[in-house]
Structures are given as structure tokens and as C-alpha cells.
Design a protein around this nucleic acid. Structure first.
Ligand SMILES: NC(=O)c1ccc[n+]([C@@H]2O[C@H](COP(=O)([O-])OP(=O)(O)OC[C@H]3O[C@@H](n4cnc5c(N)ncnc54)[C@H](O)[C@@H]3O)[C@@H](O)[C@H]2O)c1
Ligand SMILES: NC(=O)c1ccc[n+]([C@@H]2O[C@H](COP(=O)([O-])OP(=O)(O)OC[C@H]3O[C@@H](n4cnc5c(N)ncnc54)[C@H](O)[C@@H]3O)[C@@H](O)[C@H]2O)c1
Lengths: 215, 215
DNA sequence: AGCCTCTTGTGAACTGATGCACAAGGTGTC
DNA sequence: GACACCTTGTGCATCAGTTCACAAGAGGCT
């Protein structure tokens, strides 16, 4: 019954999964989906689906389920997927190139519009359709291309400096792959994707099971 | 005072950060670190550091802090970082290549020992020192090279099949980049790294702020 | 020794998220 | 219209994780 109140963080993190789950239904065709089905498609449980959707003020129909088209619209609305948020990739190394070359981002409203790199051999080149600039031009790029999100894929040593430059240019959303802690003002949202840590968490469980197995 | 009880998931996820924070101290030199300092280095707060470390049964010294060398040893012990867990990368495209080429993983005990790809032009080649095999050979590879962790960087359509093959070969730890839900037996630990979702979460906050700003 | 300062370890309150269970409300059939 | 059948929406209990606040312990200084 919440018309448009605050949406819990945990719910926000699942909305994209629901949206993706709805891709299983053809567009334009009238269909309904139950919380049970959607739960399967998104890999969560049905109670969570219902509670999450209730935060959107979305009304399904009791006895029937949710109208797929309307639900898609509601979630898109909440996430603001109609917007296009231009992305700048800082550090066109192995990872940066993979990101820039990835079509899935552009499709979902996150086009990579420019890149920076400190390597003189890369500056001025165009990689996968993305032009590479000197780090010093970051401020210009952000303003000129209306960049909303900065991706940090530089070595860890350069990450904080890059973050500072992004913040100085007015970017308030950062996704970082550098294995280091970044500091920034509170209003800047930083999502740190730490793959080495992910592997270490897997390693922890392997280690624990091995010990348990031996005992 | 917990000697070696169950460690909460949230704590496990932070242990690698503490370990990384301790890199700020030179090895072999005697030094102590307070929960406050370590909190800064890991980007969390001091209370969390103390509670987390208390789960390891680690004892710091009141009035002084934690002995850096001993703490490093304790956390390493808990995470089992002394072990080496061989990794197979499934899908040597943009992302797979970046991962295979990344030295940071090998350094931390996660060497990429082989890869698979369905592209006949890639099968049989060696990319960045990693030999690429046909998907059908996955079982052999896992057994022969004692693979512990499977990375899925295939297109989403091929992800479930790849996961099934990994599980059939006895792999119980999977890190997936494919934007899809994977099903597997309960004993298999799957960590899904969904970059498009991460961006959408950033997009949600941008969207919300934009609305708030207009109001 | 006595005292002061520092920092840990932890009980306890609090917060946010999860999952259960069921009444409320809708559909379809006879 | 009445009844049988579904599935939502939500109140409530529960759980995990976070944060506070402080007593207890350790070192150092006089
Ligand atoms: N490649 C992976 O699979 C992987 C996995 C986990 C984490 N990471 C992390 O992601 C980051 C990038 O990894 P990578 O493998 O692409 O490294 P890389 O060395 O291939 O690329 C880094 C790029 O950043 C550029 N660079 C350096 N300083 C810069 C600056 N100040 N501004 C802009 N560009 C700058 C370099 O010239 C280089 O091209 C690293 O922090 C790494 O630890 C990478
Ligand atoms: N590149 C990125 O930055 C990025 C970002 C987010 C998510 N992803 C996801 O990661 C995955 C890989 O992305 P990518 O950009 O590397 O794609 P890609 O198309 O460059 O690479 C995919 C590779 O997988 C191989 N492949 C196909 N079927 C296979 C199978 N059954 N077994 C083994 N290999 C198989 C293909 O031959 C290809 O080489 C995709 O699911 C993508 O959605 C990538």
C-alpha cells in the first residue's frame, strides 16, 4: 500500500533481477505472472517478490498474478531505466577494454562514451569505438559528454586519484574494480567490485569443507 | 572468546579486506595496529573490526592493539590462503581473456590453469599462457588439473550448461559473470557478479536524486 | 605502588531484512 | 448467487548484522 515511499536497498538490488526475469515473456503479448513464477525466474523466493513489489505500490491481482506488461513498466519506472546514463571508463587495460567492448551496457542505457588512460601509446586512439583521452582531460570529458557514471579500471595505485578527479568533475556514481578502499564525499555512491575478494570467499568455503571432510 | 566457532558470512566477506589493509605494513617488522587504524585501511568502522576479529578467537592486546604479523597469520589461517585453488575460465571472450591475463589472481592463490571456449578458432590455441580447450573436455580438465573453482564468462545462453558441466565434474565453487540465474545443488557455492545490475543500482540512485532535485 | 591513558572484547539495544501464515479479495463454474 | 479455488498483500515472528557504550585489562609514567 506504499504509494511511493522509500524503497529498501535490498529491494532495489533485486528489481533488476525481476526485470531480467520478465524478459522470459514476449513483449506486447498480454500475460500474467505469479510471484511464484517470477521468484523462479529471478532466483529468489516468492514471499520476497511480493514484499518487494509491494514497495513499488504495484498492485497485482489476487487469484491471478501480475500483468507482465504493467509490471515491466512499474519496475522500469522505479529504476528509471528510461534514462540514459553515459559512462566513462578510466583505465583502458585488459578489463577496461572488455567493458568498453561490451554491448550489454549500451543496451540497458549505460553507453560508454569515452575512456581515459595514462599510456601515451593509447591516448588519441579509438578502441572498440571508444576514444581514449589523457587522464587530465577527464573534467572536460565529463562536462562535455554529460557523463553520469565513472568506471575505475586503473591499477590500484591510480584509483584514488582517478576517483578524486571524477568527483571534482561532478560525477556522483562510481563503479570501481581496483582492489583498494576509495574515499569520497558521502553524496558519492561507490560500488566496489572486488573479484579477488570474491575468489577468497569461495576459497574460504573450500577450505572449511576440506577441514570438515578430514575431521 | 570464540575459539573457532562458525564465522558469520558478513565477517568472512570482510576478512580479505583486512588482510589487504595489512599490506600497508612492511612484512617482518614488528608493529601493532589498532582497530581504528585497521578500520580506516579496510574502509569499515572500528566496532565491526573488533567484533569480526573476535570471531577468529584472535586476541589483541588491550591498550595496544593487534600484532600485525600475528593478525596476518590468523586471518590467513581462517581464510585458508595457504591453499592454492586452481581455476578454469569457461568462455575466453573479452572478459575471460581479461581474467586469464590478470596476475593478481595467481598471486593470491588462484591460478588460471586452463580455459574452454566453443569457438573452433580458439580451441587449441594458447592465450596469455592459458591453453583453450573444447567445452566437452571440461570434465577431463577439472580432474587432470585438480580444478577447484570454475569461472563462467560465456554468453548467458551457455551459462547453465557450463555450470552443469562444472558440477558434473565435481566443481563446487563457481563465479559467474553471466546475467542469468544459475541452478545447482545446494552444496555448490555460486557467486554471481552482475555488472549490469550494479550499474542499474547506480542508475536508480541517480534517478532518485534527479527527481528529488527537481521537486 | 598508584594512577593515568589507551584500546580491546562484549553485552545489549537497534536496525534492516527474511520468511511464515493467513485473511482479504479476485476469478470461474455450476 | 453460492461455492471452490487461487494468489496477493501484509502483520508478525525471527534472524543476521550493526552500532553503542563501557567494564576490564594492559602498558607506561611518576
Ligand atoms: N583484469 C582483471 O581480470 C581484473 C580482475 C580483478 C581486478 N582487476 C583490477 O582492475 C584494474 C584494471 O585491471 P587490468 O587488468 O585492466 O589492468 P591493466 O594494467 O591491463 O590496465 C590498467 C590500465 O590503466 C591505465 N592507467 C594507469 N594509470 C592511469 C590513470 N591515472 N588514469 C587512467 N588510466 C591509467 C594503464 O595505462 C593501463 O592501460 C586493476 O586495479 C586490477 O587490479 C582486474
Ligand atoms: N565484457 C564485459 O564487460 C561484460 C560485462 C558484464 C557482463 N558480461 C557477461 O560476461 C559474459 C562474457 O562476456 P564477454 O564480453 O566476454 O562475451 P564474449 O562474447 O566476448 O565472449 C564469450 C565467449 O564464450 C564463448 N562460448 C560460447 N559458448 C560457450 C560454451 N558453451 N563453452 C565455452 N565457451 C563458450 C564464445 O566463443 C566467446 O569466446 C557474458 O555473459 C556477458 O553478458 C560481460
Amino acid at each position: 500500500m506504499a504509494p511511493l515511499g522509500r524503497i529498501p536497498e535490498a529491494t532495489v538490488a533485486r528489481l533488476p533481477l525481476y526485470l531480467r526475469g520478465l524478459d522470459a515473456f514476449p513483449v506486447g503479448v498480454t500475460a500474467t505472472v505469479s510471484s511464484d513464477e517470477l521468484a523462479d525466474l529471478a532466483g529468489v523466493n516468492a514471499a520476497k517478490v511480493r514484499k518487494d513489489l509491494s514497495h513499488l505500490g504495484t498492485y497485482g491481482t489476487r487469484g491471478v498474478g501480475y500483468d507482465v506488461t504493467f509490471l515491466r513498466f512499474q519496475i522500469s519506472q522505479a529504476l528509471g531505466v528510461a534514462n540514459v546514463w553515459p559512462v566513462v571508463v578510466c583505465g583502458m587495460g585488459n578489463l577496461g577494454r572488455a567493458l568498453a567492448n561490451h554491448t550489454g551496457f549500451t543496451d540497458r542505457g549505460f553507453p560508454v562514451v569515452a575512456a581515459t588512460d595514462s599510456d601515451p601509446n593509447k591516448i588519441g586512439t579509438i578502441v572498440d569505438g571508444v576514444s581514449v583521452h589523457a587522464p587530465g582531460e577527464l573534467g572536460d570529458i565529463v562536462r562535455r559528454l554529460d557523463v553520469a557514471i565513472g568506471v575505475i579500471s586503473t591499477p590500484a595505485e591510480a584509483a584514488q586519484g582517478t576517483a578524486d578527479a571524477l568527483v571534482a568533475a561532478g560525477v556522483t556514481s562510481i563503479m570501481s574494480f581496483a582492489p583498494t578502499v576509495l574515499s569520497a564525499p558521502d553524496e558519492v555512491e561507490i560500488r566496489s567490485v572486488d573479484l579477488a575478494t570474491e575468489l577468497q570467499i569461495l576459497g574460504f568455503h573450500l577450505h572449511r569443507n576440506r577441514i570438515a571432510g578430514d575431521a
